[in-house]
Each structure stands twice: as structure tokens, then as C-alpha cells.
Design a protein around this nucleic acid. Structure first.
Length: 555
RNA sequence: GCCCCCGUAGCUCAGCUGGAUAGAGCGGCGGCCUUCUAAGCCGCGGGUCGCAGGUUCGAGUCCUGCCGGGGGCACCA
């Protein structure tokens, strides 16, 4: 149990002791890091919540919560103070802080992770951009978000599988084939075709493109684009466990996957025929209207593919599916959810996350993003210009449900101002300090800290040098990591980790400013600070790793 | 018309699902390198949290209604 969880448990125990067998308060007590130093190291609203239950003044209750806590925490607690309407501010003693550092070091790379109660098997499907062109920079946001999310889910203890759904079937793909042939013949690309320069390259790299059928060219072109997309993603640090072909749902042995899914819906009584077409009773499951699954001409709609695809996902026995879609698909969410339930899926098992747009700004104007017109900035170009780390950090530092602007001119000229470098710099700086101290002293410091942690646990005795304010602040920030991870998981919000990493780097830099590490006197101070530096480096590296950003040891 | 997201500092955005005097980065102004990395540090300036009500000890956060921006409402994908 981490020190913060223990502290919270003590606060809750104190509250429970005061409450006796009376009803529990409506909300859980908070244990927060106050914004102002004057408000202590941690503050709890326990008394404010107990007031209605006990029918007494909050401040008087806070007083008693403080007494209960003092009894429970002994010399771990330095002081308490009742403040404001009835907050109880806590100041922890140095031994508590030293034990906390020991805990972080002992937990090692597991610190903050593996805390989920019930591990799940999760399939995360993301990016899934049409293979009719290269990945755009906008797709980079999907890639950065989805990859960070799955890293965080894994770290938290879930089993996660990542998948890219390849839309290699249907009219868009055929248009690509037609466009390739037109280019190969030196003809004008059709109006509804793909105008990009890459189509010309595709035409050149496919033998006999001028004479081939568009359908064949579509297959060949998609294969080439898919490979290129995979390369772009790998260069961006994003790896997919599997690539799922939409076409495979329509081909192969009869009945096809699409046909089987239709039969299943039919058997469940979720289909009906009208105007020659086959309809899904989506309204049964909360959609605005019923949806066509198979057109009057016998052709399946895109929904039919998606139904079959999700049936396939279901058969793979995940406990949860997370689909990450662009905001332009949000109108599609309800029908997918309806189809999912019609297939017999549990509504809670399918989660659809909607990503808002990232607008690329160039020359003060929004850059185009039309794949059709070939007017777009590719992910490859973005990575080449500002680097994978800067691009990824930029993409995940904001909440996925808010639109954001990326000014390319700014990103190019001032990429060094990207906060990611500040975080990496802190990490590299620690590496430099540790190198200066030497592996021997660092190793001894870590050992000493862990031994210290054990001896405090055994006999409750602690005799060490007193800590500076910036050391205490840094340690509190380290201890916040597990809760930040939990929050990021719960809310599918990797940007929380980006914000956390920045804060941790700031706290370390303040510590660095105030506290000499190598050569600090007496030696016990140096030992403690080395241990604290190691702990910080470890958590910084972990946080960056969760974002898919490198943690350099030198810059 | 209906549905979803957003509106917080000059700009880009956080704000821990209701807590105390609302923050960060960038930009602006002024300082700081004989000392573990100046990709850094310190200081200053900058806000009717879109507007109006409501809920309560307490609202940027929750509810209602407006206003503004973006997106979506296919037998396209």
C-alpha cells in the first residue's frame, strides 16, 4: 500500500470512529494537495461531510478528526490545523517523507501501476484511417492518443490488444484503383478520385498499371498504402498488434462473416425488409431511426461491415472494446451501439471514444486535410519537421474531447519550447547528477533508503536530517503518481499524464535549484537526495514511457 | 429542427467529477551562468471562468435557459 493510500485510510478510519454507527456521509472524504502551502501538506474535508451526520459544527468536528489522526499516525504526523469552514490541514513529519521515498524506490518501475482491482481483456481499435492515402498529421492525434491510452491501460494491469481496422473494401477503394489507372495512363484523375501526388507514385510502382482493372489496382494500391501507413506509425512509435481487413469480412468461404452476422441478427428478430432493402431495428436499442444493412440492390452497407467486424471482436472474448473514432463519425455511435446490442453484446462492453479535431495552422490559416484532393500534411512530414517526441507530446497534452490548433510555423521554429523538452531535460539532468555521484554511491543510497524504510516500519524509529520544503513538495508530487494513473485510466485521459510529467519536472527543477545533491553535507543528506533523485528519475521515465516519449540521459 | 464537443490570461490549453486567494506553457517586460546541464532559474504584468437564473456551508466544476464556435444527423465510408 502506498503511503498516500495509508494516509487516506487513516483519515477514513478517524472519520468512521467519530461517526460510530451513524449513517455514512453522502460523499467520500477528500485528501487533496492544497494549492497554498499555508494550507498544509494535505487537507481533508472529512469534518465538512460529517457535520450533517453528527449535527455539530464542522470546525469542532475537524478538531476531533485531528486528535484521532494524531493518535493513529504518531510521530508520522507533525501537526494539524483546522481552517476555513472546517477543513483539516495536515503537515506530515520528515520520517513519513523518508519512508515515502523508500516506498517509491522499493516499488521500482511498478510504482503507480498494477492497481486495478479487476484486470480486463481490452481491445483498443484506433487510427483505422482509410488506406487510400498516407496518414495525415491529424491521424497522428489518434495514433498518439490511442497508443498512450493502451500503454496506460497495460501499466494499470489490463491485458490490452491494439488493432487497426483497414477499410480495404468498397467504393472509396475502387476510386483509388481508378485514380491509379488514370495516373498510369497520364489521364485526368476523375473528380471523385484521389488527386494526391502519391497516387502517381503508386501508379509507377505497380507494373502494368495502365492496362490493369481498377479493382486489381485498388488491391495493389491499398497493399502499398497499408505498408506505408505501418511504417509511418512505427516511426511514430506506434505499433499495432493486428491489422484487420474489412475485405476479409466479405470474402472467403460462404457464408461470409457479413452473412453470418446478418443471419444472427435475423435469428434475433432484429431485421426486417422494406423497399427491397434489409433494415436493422436500431430504434429498439435507442437509435433515432432504423438503419439499412443491405441495400435494395443487394449490396451491404458500411454498417454491415461494422456489424460483422464487431461480431468478430465479440467472438474473440474480450471483456471490453474501445473504439476510437474521429468526431466526424460521432453520428454513427448510436447505431453502432444499437447493432452491438442487437448482436447480444452488453452495452457497457463497447466504449466509443470520440476524438476532436486537431487543426493544422500554416501561414496563419487552417491547412487542408482532404485526402481526396491530396491537400494535406502527412504524419511523416510532421515527424520529420519536429520529431516524434515533440509531435507525440503535443498531441497528447490536451484532452481528446477538445479541438486543438497546431501552428506548424510555430512548431517548426520553436519546437525547443515544447514542454516535452523541459521534462526530458529534467530526466537528463538527473542522469547527469547520478553519473557525477557514481554508480557506487547511488547504489548505496538506494539500498540505504530501502533499509531505512524497513527499519521505520519495524520499530517506528527515524533519525535523519530534516528536509527542505522543495524536497517535501517533490516527494508529494511523486506520491501523486498512482492516483494520476488511476485517473488517466478511468477517464481515458492520457493528457493527465502529460500534465503530471510537466509538474514533476518542475518540482524536480525547484529541488535542484534549492538543494545541492552531490557533495551535500552531512553525508546522510547526500545519500537521501541521491535516493530522491533516483526515485524522481524512475517516475519521470515511467510517465514519459506511458506517453510513448523517450527519456534521454543526456541532451 | 434534433444530437455530440467546446467557450477559462494576448495565444494554446489544464483545472484532480463540488472545496479555501483559478493555474501551466508560449508570448511581453526586467534580472541571473567561477558552483551537480542556462533546453535552465528568479521577478513583474496579464481574468466579469460566454451570459442569466437555480441547487448549498461552498460553483470554473452540478441543473435549466439563452448566446457564440466546431462537428454530426445517408440505401457514402
Amino acid at each position: 500500500m502506498n503511503p498516500l493510500a495509508e494516509l487516506r485510510a487513516a483519515v477514513e478510519a478517524a472519520a468512521t470512529a467519530l461517526r460510530g454507527d451513524r449513517a455514512a456521509p453522502s460523499a467520500a472524504v477528500t485528501l487533496q494537495r492544497p494549492k497554498l502551502e499555508a494550507h498544509g501538506d494535505y487537507a481533508t474535508n472529512a469534518a465538512l461531510l460529517l457535520a450533517p451526520v453528527l449535527g455539530e459544527q464542522p470546525r469542532a468536528i475537524a478538531e476531533r478528526v485531528g486528535e484521532e489522526l494524531a493518535e493513529r499516525l504518531g510521530d508520522q504526523l507533525q501537526s494539524t490545523q483546522v481552517a476555513g469552514p472546517g477543513f483539516l490541514n495536515l503537515v506530515l513529519a520528515d520520517p513519513w517523507y523518508r519512508a515515502a521515498v523508500a516506498h517509491v524506490l522499493a516499488a521500482g518501475r511498478r510504482f503507480g501501476g498494477g492497481e486495478v482491482g479487476a484486470p480486463e481483456r481490452i481491445l483498443v481499435e484506433f487510427v483505422s484511417a482509410n488506406p487510400t492515402g498516407p496518414l495525415t498529421a491529424a491521424s497522428g492525434r489518434h495514433a498518439a492518443y490511442g497508443d498512450a491510452l493502451l500503454r496506460i491501460l497495460r501499466f494499470a494491469g489490463h491485458e490490452v490488444h491494439s488493432e487497426y481496422y483497414v477499410n480495404d473494401y468498397g467504393s472509396q477503394v475502387l476510386r483509388l484503383g481508378e485514380s491509379i489507372r488514370a495516373r498510369a495512363r497520364g489521364e485526368q484523375v476523375p473528380n471523385d478520385g484521389y488527386q494526391g501526388e502519391y497516387v502517381r507514385e503508386l501508379a509507377m510502382s505497380i507494373d502494368g498499371a495502365a492496362e490493369a482493372e481498377p479493382a486489381e489496382l485498388a488491391v495493389a494500391g491499398v497493399a502499398l498504402m497499408r505498408a506505408r501507413i505501418e511504417r509511418s506509425l512505427e516511426a511514430f512509435g506506434v505499433h499495432f498488434d493486428s491489422w484487420f481487413s474489412e475485405r476479409s469480412l466479405h470474402e472467403g468461404e460462404r457464408p461470409t462473416a457479413v452473412q453470418r452476422a446478418e443471419a444472427e441478427l435475423e435469428a434475433g428478430g432484429h431485421l426486417y425488409r422494406s423497399d427491397e432493402a434489409s433494415w436493422l431495428r436500431a430504434t429498439t436499442f435507442g437509435d433515432d431511426k432504423d438503419r439499412v444493412l443491405r441495400r435494395a440492390d443487394g449490396q451491404p452497407t458500411y454498417l454491415a461491415s461494422d456489424v460483422a467486424y464487431h461480431e468478430h471482436k465479440r467472438a474473440r472474448s474480450f471483456t471490453r472494446l474501445i473504439d476510437i473514432w474521429g468526431s466526424d463519425h460521432h453520428g454513427y455511435v448510436r447505431r453502432m451501439q444499437a447493432a452491438w446490442q442487437a448482436l447480444g453484446g452488453d452495452a457497457d462492453e463497447l466504449e466509443i471514444v470520440i476524438m476532436q479535431y486537431v487543426h493544422l495552422i500554416e501561414g496563419g490559416e487552417r491547412a487542408g486535410m482532404s485526402k481526396r484532393r491530396g491537400d494535406f500534411i502527412t504524419l511523416d512530414e510532421l515527424v520529420a519537421e519536429i520529431g516524434s517526441d515533440a509531435a507525440r507530446y503535443f498531441m497528447v497534452q490536451r484532452s481528446h474531447d477538445t479541438e486543438m490548433d497546431l501552428d506548424l510555423d510555430l512548431a517548426r521554429s520553436q519546437s525547443a519550447d515544447n514542454p516535452v523538452y523541459y521534462v526530458q531535460y529534467a530526466h537528463a539532468r538527473i542522469a547527469s547528477i547520478l553519473e557525477k555521484a557514481g554508480a557506487g554511491r547511488v547504489g548505496a543510497a538506494v539500498e540505504d533508503s530501502e533499509r531505512h524504510g524497513r527499519s521505520v516500519a519495524d520499530n517506528g524509529r527515524d533519525t535523519g536530517p530534516s528536509l527542505e520544503p522543495s524536497e517535501r513538495t517533490l516527494i508529494r508530487t511523486l506520491l501523486a503518481f498512482p492516483a494520476e494513473v488511476a485517473e488517466a485510466v478511468e477517464r481515458r485521459a492520457p493528457h493527465r499524464i502529460a500534465a503530471y510529467a510537466l509538474e514533476l519536472a518542475q518540482r524536480f527543477t525547484a529541488f535542484y535549484r534549492d538543494c545541492r545533491v552531490v557533495g551535500a553535507e552531512p553525508p546522510a543528506v547526500e545519500t537521501f537526495r541521491l535516493a530522491l533523485s533516483v526515485a524522481t528519475q524512475q517516475v519521470l521515465a515511467q510517465a514519459l514511457g506511458l506517453l510513448g516519449v523517450s527519456a534521454p540521459t543526456a541532451m
